[in-house]
Design a protein around this nucleic acid. Structure first.
Lengths: 241, 241
DNA sequence: CGGCTTGTTGAAGAGTTTCAAGCTTAGTGG
DNA sequence: CCACTAAGCTTGAAACTCTTCAACAAGCCG
């Protein structure tokens, strides 16, 4: 099990530095590392609550489904993202979380939340920060799905994912490998699979971007910027628990 | 200025009881009551952060706009809702908040957040609870806008608003007065104004529900339930700050 | 090899938007 | 008191975006 003081994630600029004392405290909360196969449910919709986790490596997504099977992907989770905070306010999980790749997550002990607030106010603040930050992501997604048309949605979506992944040094040679299918994109953007495919092809034909079997390249920032303002939005440092 | 110990909101079942000590603490944070005219911006999009508020009376909504003016209403705010938590994680407001009626809000002092976490861990937990809870609202909205069709969207929307307002005893004779226009509904649900109107008329013609000049009645729960599962979802008690 | 998942494409159809016009209501000022 | 204005609501028709249906291709795995 990786020691929190040696956490490879924490070394990145993306995350705000943390006091040694707090780091040691986090270490005491970490119970184990758990892994999930691609497609496995880390959190099951409507089931009783599970543990609090931090995603250490791999990709996952949060989603909700309707009775008839329609699925909305709410957002995608990358390393450093917290899983399960929202469930703690409800008896049952209001959404599911599914692993897209092999996922490794740090599992915290059951009463982690309470201990944090009681013993480490700064970390309590960080928790609220993370909750509010994730909400602002969903706000963005709601804006996208509610107001943008298909081309704009896809451009916005890819730019956002690209920037997040870039902060985690996952972009290599201007190429990002994303373990998502067009199915995922469709469900995240409220589009049909067919229309997603056609829009994707159109964007490629125009030379704006390429997404082929999980490899994403933003080819023409100029063209992309005509479709979305997401590219020029600054990114903030964030806490890591 | 209303004393927090006499807060009319807090008397309702909807809100979780709070210890006297915590209540007194909240009282020390409350600086003043501020009011806003209908249409006034409580928080301005992209502007520097403002104070933290709790909505005491009136209706408001959170929104985001695109460069060309398209607007997405993210959610509606009712008495007891916290305003400005999300802004505290960013230099500028990521969304705007606009008053729909005359609004009265409790304004807290500048460093409220920090004091809460440092001095009242239980309230710190409540803050995170509220942040996570609002996110779950937005999750619901994203599901609605992304996956449901117009009739379902409107049915879901009205049921959710109705239930929230009902908890605040705002429903009288099975009728709820909502200060919203079809414009608001359209922007909240990602529909055009015209289509919103036509869908609304269709729902009325079918006898499902009536929304006429701000008066909402859910006429046929059976019919509404065929359009949305929102009606049968339980409601949870929540903290009030 | 066959079966399964993912991606691709054309055509038809439905849902939704846009355009355009008129209506009602409430408020304002002469 | 009535003309005028502005905001919100209503409706029909045309146009368009997006969905659904259907079929097939490509890649992967046991």
């Amino acid at each position: 099990m990786i020691d929190c003081t040696q956490c490879p994630l924490r070394k990145r600029d993306l995350f705000t530095p943390v006091e040694t004392e707090e780091l040691n405290f986090i270490q005491t909360l970490k119970r184990q590392e758990v892994s999930f196969e691609p497609g496995a449910n880390i959190v099951e919709e409507h089931k009783k609550i599970s543990h609090l986790h931090t995603l250490l490596s791999g990709w996952a997504f949060r989603y909700k489904t309707l009775d008839d099977g329609r699925r909305q992907i709410l957002n995608f989770l990358l390393p450093g993202d917290l899983i399960g905070l929202q469930e703690r306010i409800s008896d049952t999980a209001l959404h599911g979380v599914q692993a897209m790749t092999e996922v490794v997550a740090c599992r915290f002990e059951r009463n982690t939340l309470w201990k944090i607030f009681a013993q480490q106010p700064t970390l309590g603040f960080d928790l609220t920060w993370l909750a509010a930050h994730e909400e602002s992501h969903i706000d963005d997604n709601l804006l996208t799905v509610g107001q943008r048309r298909a081309k704009e949605r896809i451009a916005t979506f890819f730019v956002q994912i690209y920037k997040r992944a870039d902060q985690l040094d996952m972009v290599i040679n201007d190429t990002l490998e994303i373990p998502i299918t067009q199915y995922h994109i469709a469900d995240a953007l409220g589009l049909s699979l067919v229309h997603t495919n056609k829009t994707l092809r159109a964007l490629y034909r125009e030379g704006a971007l390429q997404f082929d079997r999980g490899r994403l390249q933003l080819l023409d920032i100029q063209k992309i910027s005509e479709l979305t303002d997401a590219y020029h939005r600054p990114v903030k440092r964030r806490p890591l628990l």
